[in-house]
Design a protein around this nucleic acid. Sequence first.
DNA 1: GCAATGATTGCACGCCGTGCAATGATGGGG
DNA 2: CCCCATCATTGCACGGCGTGCAATCATTGC
Lengths: 202, 202
Amino acid sequence: MPASEDLRERRRRQTEREIHAAALRLATEHGFDHLTVDMISAEAGISRRTFFNYFASKEAAIVAGPRILPAEALAAFLAVESSEPVRVLRDLGALLLSEMTANLPDRDDLRAVFALAEAHTSVLAALLSSFDRFEHEVADAAARRLGVPPGTELPALLACVAIAPMRVGLHRWSLGDAVDPQPQVERTVALLHDLLAPGDTP
Amino acid sequence: MPASEDLRERRRRQTEREIHAAALRLATEHGFDHLTVDMISAEAGISRRTFFNYFASKEAAIVAGPRILPAEALAAFLAVESSEPVRVLRDLGALLLSEMTANLPDRDDLRAVFALAEAHTSVLAALLSSFDRFEHEVADAAARRLGVPPGTELPALLACVAIAPMRVGLHRWSLGDAVDPQPQVERTVALLHDLLAPGDTP
DNA sequence: GCAATGATTGCACGCCGTGCAATGATGGGG
DNA sequence: CCCCATCATTGCACGGCGTGCAATCATTGC
C-alpha cells in the first residue's frame, strides 16, 4: 500500500515536471502569447484534459510547483528555544536560504520564469500567488516557534519581512548575469540585518 | 484642451467606479463563480466589449484601481533630508498610512474585496498584483529619497518591508469586526518598529 | 458646421476551464 | 492467475473569456 502510493506520487511529480519543462521550453521558444495549452499538452505527451488535472492554467504550469520548507531545516528552526522576535526573524532568514539551496531545480529555469513574469502580468500574478502560499507556510512555522496560534499578526509580519530579501534578491538576480542566485539573496538578507542592528556586520 | 482632457478623464474614472461597484455588488449577491462579464456590463449599463476597455478581467474589476500615493504626503516624504535607512523606513510607514486615509473609498468595499480574495485564488492573484504595482511605486519614492537610481536593492527592500505591516494589518482587519482598518494597521506598524528598535515605544 | 479625436459597440474567432462519463492501467486479494 | 477496486487518462461538449477589427457615435477645437 505505502509502496504503491509512493510510486503513484512519484509518477505524478514526474509528469508535473515534464509538463512544466514543456511549458517553459515552448514559452521561451515561441513567446508566451503564442503558447496554448494544446501545445504544452502535445509537447508533454498528454491530452489537453490531463493538463488541467495537473495545472489550473498555463501560467501555473510555468511557475509550477509549491515551495516546500525542507524538513530537516524546519526541524532545526523549530528546535531553537528563543522566542525573541528579532532572533526568530534572523533564523527565518537562514531557513529561507536553506530552502533555496534545497529547491534549486535549475537556475536557468528560475531565471526564465522571472523573465516571463516581468513581461506578462498573468505570469507575474501566478508567481506572486506562489510566493504568497509560501509565505503562509513560513508564517505557520514562525507561529509554532513563537508558541502563538497560527494566523496571528506577529508570525505573519515576520514571515512577510523575512521573505522580502528573498523576493527582492531573486528579482535583482534575474535581471543580472550571475549564475547563482544565492550570493545576491545573501547580500540582500545582510542588508535587512543591517536595518535591524545597524553596523554590526561580523 | 486641459479642460476637455480633465473632463474625459473624470468621466472615465466615473465609469470605472461604476463598473467596480457593479462587479462587487453582483459578486456578493450571486457569488463570484456565478458572476460573468455580461452580468457586470449589464448592471453597469455598458456593453460587454466596453467592459474590456476598462478592465482586463472580472477579477481586475473587483480589485479595481491602482493605489496612488497622495501628492502632498509624497512631497513631505521626499522633503526630509535624512537618507538613513531606518529613518526612511519609518517615514515610509507614515507615508503609507497617509495613503490609506486618502484612499479610503469604502470600508465595506475593501472588506468585501479581501473576503473574495480569501475564497477565490484568481481574485487573490489580482489583489497581489495590485499590491505589487503599489510596491514598485513606493520603491521609486524611496529611491528618490535615498538619492539612488530606481531599481536598486535598498529601496526595493525598504518598500517591501514597509508594506508588510499594511498587508498583514489589512488582512487581519478584514477577518475581524472592526469598522476602521486604520487602528489595526497602526498596531502592526508599531510591531514592526519594535523589531527595529526594541522597547522604545513612545 | 466641420473635421478630428476618442469612446462605444457588435461581430467573430480561438482559447480557456470544467463537468461528465467512458476507458485504460495498476495493484491487491481471492 | 484472474478479478475487482482504485485511480489516472481521455474525449466530448459547453459556456465563458479576451481581443482584433471595423463601424458608429459623441465631443471638442477650429
